[in-house]
């Protein structure tokens, strides 16, 4: 690893080498974190000045007319591009409030007739009210998020920081496990879970997450852990901290953005995961949102497009809220989390 570092650092004046971590004593809010870490005593964690949401005051002085115009243009561009990005979703929203029959006969973006019945009809169209499927999805999602956060971060720490025997090989095996398409492993998996009598329970959808089978997130956290200056854990180690302590007290707090990313992605992807939920849950009482949504559409007969669009919008709301709320944690970064 040293070799790789050199290859990069030499030509580019590697910034990490220029600035010693301990030198940067931050002003403002960071000093609190610094004080807190000092208070904890045992770990003389250097007060690393990670970013906060606000820019350093320096910036504010330079607010001139030119920069205001530039910012206006930026907003205009972002809004315009945002509209293009959102067009399909807006179309879906508008279709969901059209009378069913007009959806394809009058596919313009602005509805000529308002009709909210798609929402009421769609909500009650299936065997259970739609809330039943939302709840089922929530249970699975919650288990998956917790599972991924715990198990993947543990595994990631080992791959990022521990020099154990056969690490590259295990790492390769880990990556390999996400290289096979689900369609060939789902049948053996089904057989396995059916032998365990797990079919029609949420277990096949949650237990694997508790056992770190989602290599995507292990690798994600490995990359983030490796981005955390090693001086930090070395300092802690000199002070006699063990791996468990370093993991909980240094790595996890410093990797908040990665943990937030993992939580958000797990939430969204599990929420949207159709195939495995379709296969492992055969009893309609256990159906989840994506499986329930499919039952609005039947390519061989009549489909309830209006209900589909309406319930798709409904099912987007929770993940949108999770995202809106969760992205704060991506932004907050380290400083406000503090280092205990």
């Amino acid at each position: 690893m040293t070799e790789r570092q050199d290859a990069v650092s030499t030509p580019r004046e590697n910034p990490a080498r220029d600035a010693s971590v301990t030198e940067a004593v931050p002003p403002g809010p960071q000093s609190q974190a610094g004080a807190a870490s000092g208070g904890a005593g045992t770990l003389p964690v250097p007060a690393v000045a990670f970013s906060t949401d606000e820019r350093p005051p320096l910036r504010k002085h330079r607010r001139t007319a030119g920069s205001r115009v530039r910012s206006l243009l930026k907003h205009a561009g972002l809004i315009g591009f945002g509209f293009v990005m959102l067009y399909p979703l807006l179309w879906m929203l508008s279709s969901s409030i059209k009378p069913n029959a007009l959806i394809f006969r009058d596919p313009s973006l602005l509805p000529t007739e308002l009709d909210l019945s798609n929402y009421t009809v769609g909500w009650n169209a299936l065997l259970h009210p739609f809330s039943h499927y939302l709840l089922n999805s929530f249970i699975i999602v919650l288990g998956s998020v917790l599972g991924n956060l715990m198990s993947c971060s543990l595994a990631a720490y080992a791959f990022a920081r521990l020099k154990f025997k056969g690490r590259p090989i295990w790492f390769a095996i880990m990556l390999m496990s996400i290289m096979l398409p689900i369609h060939v492993v789902i049948v053996p998996q089904y057989i396995l879970f059916s032998q365990l009598e797990w079919i029609n329970t949420f277990l096949p959808l949650i237990v694997p997450k508790l056992l770190a089978t989602d290599a995507f997130f292990i690798f994600l956290m490995v990359q983030f852990f490796r981005g955390i200056p090693k001086e930090l854990d070395e300092a802690a180690r000199i002070d006699g901290a063990g791996h468990a302590r370093i993991f909980f007290r240094i790595m996890l707090p410093l990797a908040t953005p990665a943990l937030a990313t993992t939580a958000i992605f797990t939430f969204i992807w599990t929420w949207n995961d159709f195939f495995s939920q379709l296969i492992f849950l055969t009893n309609p009482d256990m159906y989840t949102v994506p499986v329930a949504l499919r039952t609005f559409v039947d390519s061989t007969g009549e489909s309830s497009w209006g209900s589909l669009f309406a319930m798709s919008i409904v099912s987007l709301i929770p993940i949108f809220l999770v995202f809106l709320f969760g992205q704060k944690y991506l932004v907050k970064g380290i400083a406000t989390t503090g280092i205990k």
Binding site: P284, D298, T300
Partner: peptide
Amino acid sequence: RFAWWGSDTRHE
């Protein structure tokens, strides 16, 4: 167990 395909109207 009885398995069939279709859309919401048939299920109901």
